[in-house]
Design a protein around this nucleic acid. Structure first.
Lengths: 206, 206, 206, 206
DNA sequence: TATGAATGAGCTTTCATTCAT
DNA sequence: CATGAATGAAAGCTCATTCAT
């Protein structure tokens, strides 16, 4: 919830401003998902949105700010959905299975957003050429997953294993489930997720 | 079929030609691994190799052909090494573990090559904007891994599961092991691979 | 002729209108003096004034009109001050010395204005690319100075010389005294002006 | 004279390269002199030279490098000419007069170059917005002129005065002689220079 | 074979100006 | 009166590619 004072340093934006930003972000998501990060020029994003190139420059300080906003909006949506679904789980095994199933569930309705997110994560670089989000950007996810796994180990549900390795494998299995699903028409996402849940449950249990 | 020297439809090349191509491919690998696909302009690759920009255009039909050649040369090397190591394995469990450990073993000495390979796989697109190697480029790997898993199921070592899902998870776990190792100084690659072998063995066994 | 309030063909302006124009001119002066003519975009001037960009366009027909107004307001101020000081001089030598000293005196309190004036004189161009104020804009000054010098020649105080050359040298010496003073912290403006007065007095006298 | 080793860190350039750079510099000079620094875009300079825009980028690292090269080539030519002429002068008075006359002499044949030089001096800024050559770029000239004036004071030819103020006035009188001559068709440059020589001689002598 | 030179398309960004509200 | 929004032209620059030598 925002307070009156806009405490996080953001300027409050008008309704129109907000709508335009959302429209531009949405257009960027679609272009990136369809044509890839490298082809997603401002000109192309503007054309896709049916607006002038300059509008983007007017509403965003630069291409970087636009990309970062795409990430923040998209990533936030996923995190919220998954967190809500996991709130109901009690055991580590339940948490583990719920996480995989909830993410898959979210993917079905947010195909382009997640595809765009992946492109930006992989490709966006800072002015000095360093990746802005490298694999280090997954750290937050890894920590969250490790918490689940350690909880399982402490509760006696799970055997002893390296939680970091397990978290990386878990995270990458989900990422590639998404990529495979996007690329393979007719692929059964739910079945894939269920198999994955079994896989990691068996890999962890005593 | 052509002559022995042109088994795959390629024109036979002089020694010098071959050496130049190898030199250029090598330079491309280093630049891509270090700076990323997007920053790997022909100018930069040429400069890194200490040659003129035009040489690349002379020896390769275009940037695409160069990238494809990088993939073919690099990928072939990995496949050979892993196949040789797996020749000694008898059971499905042994094959599974050996695959993971052999790949990790190869990674240690071929860091830049594999990094470049990943960049190209992820980023290279055809003229019409479609990914040249999408996840579909993994099909060969998936088939090979599925052969192992089906063998294990038929021999009674492994439980019943969807071999395609397992293959995708297996492949992605290896890819991200590499990415994590590259990004994390001091990360123990062997220990990671051993953990991964345990993980998949437990996920598969009855 | 129009009414008293519109002596020079200008539309009569409301108080608010006048205040806004003054505010904008003032902001323009500060931005130009600080950052140079080329960096003084309307956006920057507006931001500096804490108003919207459109306000400037509303009150001025275009950037050109704003610049011209800056020149007129600023230039008028100098001329008034110098004329007042020279009113008390009787001989040509006194007039000459007083001019230099009075200008220097004015500079001390109007640094930004004069700096901005110089920037605009030097840089502003008409739509067809010709300088709007070239050296020809100094004509008025040259004529005024020539009047002093001719007076001195007629009164017998000064030797015979080309009054136009003397006027140009005089004017440029003052301009550069200003530029040097602005660029050199600690430079003694009064001493500089006094030296200059001696210089021209000696150059003129018989 | 250049040595074989190109000791000053410059890459040796081919004849064609050198010719192109000279052509581009020449085109830049003409465009700047005619249309002013602000209007001298790379596109305009290229068009004026009858070449593609990219050629300039190919031969120069950026617009800055081109501008700096214009300054260096043009400034060098003036300095050489003036120094050669002054070599024959013995007294301070002769040096003083010769300097002014030699500069004027050079101006007649290098109108556009000097005009361009002035534009760049006045307008070129570094990336952080600071003038690249401010009035500080005249320091070298001031020092050279002060040497003449001090010499005259020590030899007893000249009275006591502030040599820095005299040098600034001297330098600015020459600059504006040029500007006035450029702007005023039919103006007699030689007569102007002779008057100026008289002016400064009288201003200095005892 | 190899090179330096040249091209032109496309990139992001800045800007003065216009306009509906 | 004032604003925020939008426009489109032009800027400097990068790049893959072509070509004469």
């Amino acid at each position: 919830m925002r307070s009156e004072n806009e405490p996080s340093g953001q300027k409050s934006r008008s309704f129109i401003e907000e709508a335009r930003r959302a429209q531009i972000v949405s257009s960027a998501v679609e272009v990136i998902a369809e044509a890839g990060f490298a082809q997603a020029s401002l000109a192309r994003i503007a054309k896709h949105a049916g607006i002038s190139k300059g509008v983007i420059s007017y509403h965003f300080a630069g291409k970087d700010e636009l990309m970062v906003e795409v990430v923040e909006r998209t990533y936030g949506t996923i995190a919220e959905h998954v967190a809500a679904r996991m709130a109901g789980a009690a055991t580590a095994t339940e948490l583990l299975r719920t996480h995989i199933l909830a993410v898959a569930d979210h993917m079905r309705g947010h195909r382009t957003q997640i595809a765009a997110l992946g492109e930006i994560f992989y490709n966006l670089r800072t002015a000095d050429g360093q990746p802005r989000y490298g694999i280090k950007a997954n750290e937050e996810i890894y920590l969250a997953l490790e918490r689940i796994y350690r909880f399982g180990q402490e509760s006696g549900e799970f055997r002893d294993f390296d939680t970091r390795v397990m978290a990386i494998a878990h995270s990458s299995a989900i990422d590639n489930m998404f990529a495979y699903w996007v690329a393979t028409p007719g692929h059964d996402l739910d079945a894939h997720a269920a198999e994955l849940a079994d896989l990691f449950e068996r890999a962890c249990r005593k």
